[in-house]
Design a protein around this nucleic acid. Structure first.
Lengths: 256, 256
DNA sequence: ATGGTATACTGGTCTGACCACTATGGCAAG
DNA sequence: CTTGCCATAGTGGTCAGACCAGTATACCAT
């Protein structure tokens, strides 16, 4: 029996969502000033602290600008960010979509790394490869050094923005769906194989062979996708009480 | 006389940073339980509300997990996310780095869009081109439809993750440094030229010519970089009271 | 017209209290 | 000895009212 886990959404959460909705719908335009905390509190029938917490949450998300002594203002980019915000927390990026995106982006990054990597950076990458190899006893199949490998390759590209993008991509993998998938999906053989890929990629980067690095990275992710594809029937039949993500990558409607 | 704008950092901010530092340094391991809010309050010499606000900020960032009646726990992925968090808010991504990253990523996305765009999506892109063309009277040079164009191209790729990445890249442009730059950098001619580029890119996507779309996108960003490069001396001599970002893209040290 | 100032309003913090939920351990029934 | 209940202590969640510290504006003296 599929159970939907209850979550007693805290007040600050509900308030934040209401405000986000108003921003997304255009009811609150950029640069507009929200009512004062005290006003909001009485209008929502709650006390000030939850209101403050909601506003701080929105501030952290970059949707709103809190100016002491003046008020709370909707940021210029709030409208466009509101959708980003929702997409990210909804975690509605499917595993296949994610892998496709990584294939495109990370292969480019690998090529860039091959051009620019310093010796220190090469060593840092080597470190992660060794960590996985020497740690085959680890029961947790989701090895932290896996992410670290890809992040350090991005660092070797010498471009901070690319490092950030890589981190964002891996953050997406922490969604509940993705996490559950890997329980079924990961095996020791697969990890060893992956680490072999890592080593090959590193070799190409060492040789400053950007074409090879790019191709190897692409192949690496190709194989991961292939394995995932193979394991897919098992996964979907076991964890059915979850929104089914699109299989390969059919067309998708616009999202406003 | 260069003035550094003062920002009276609120308490919750300081607390959050301390905790982030502890997580990043490994002092607080994943799954560890933080002291209770009351404990933290007395230990930090403040009252509970600011502590709560800090924890909520960290929760929003996905670094920490607040469980009612139980406590606050460090999330599994917190350590790796902590660095992302800092990089993003520090805004230490230089304009040239950002453009380089966009050139790599967005050209790939444009190619993908040329393969998969639906007619509705093409219309949505056309909309943004028209919006900029018909709105030449707008005094604000930073036209919202510019971002929208690029986001919608990403949407046309049919991959949600790519949309998210595009949004992240454009969010980076909202840093104070980037914002100031564009004041000097933007002109009406440049905007018209950019919009012409947009139109050409759209045409290529319409024709499902992914090679052309990719190349045109790259050229578009190449030109933006060229213009920025030209305007650079003016910018740096006027707004000198800011951390100087790296010029073209020299090697960069590792950042842990 | 200029410049300072009084003042009302805003967010920031504090206090202390109470509610709702979780975890734990002891105790009683099986 | 196991099982299941339940009291209890500790946690986050919320409330109330107060005061502090900045901001903005209108007013007044110069």
């Amino acid at each position: 029996m599929p159970l939907t886990l209850v979550e007693p959404r805290r007040i600050y959460h509900q308030i934040a969502e209401q405000i986000v909705a108003m921003i997304a719908s255009g009811e609150l335009l950029p640069n507009a000033r929200l009512p004062s905390e005290r006003d909001l509190a009485v209008r929502l029938g709650v006390s000030r602290p939850p209101v403050r917490e909601a506003l701080i949450a929105l501030e952290v998300e970059g949707l709103v600008d809190v100016r002491m002594g003046s008020g709370v203002y909707v940021r210029q980019e709030a409208a466009s960010r509101a959708s980003t915000w929702r997409a990210r927390k909804a975690g509605d990026v499917g595993p296949f979509e994610l892998l496709a995106a990584r294939r495109m982006v990370e292969s480019t990054i690998a090529a860039e790394a091959a051009k620019n990597a310093t010796t220190e950076q090469l060593d840092a990458i080597q470190e992660t490869v060794d960590a996985i190899r020497d740690d085959s006893s680890r029961y947790d199949l989701r090895h932290p050094a896996d992410r670290l490998f890809h992040v350090r390759v991005a660092e070797a590209s010498g471009n901070t923005a690319l490092v950030l993008l890589t981190n964002v991509l891996w953050d997406l993998r922490d969604g509940s769906l993705h996490r559950r998938i890997e329980e079924y999906f990961s095996t020791h053989e697969l990890r060893d194989q992956s680490n072999q890929d890592h080593e090959d990629i590193l070799t190409a980067i060492r040789a400053h062979d950007s074409r090879a690095a790019s191709n190897l990275m692409r192949q690496h992710l190709d194989r991961v996708e292939r394995e995932l594809s193979r394991a897919w029937p098992t996964i979907t039949s076991t964890a059915r009480n979850e929104k089914e993500p699109a299989r390969p990558a059919p067309k998708r409607r616009n999202r406003v």
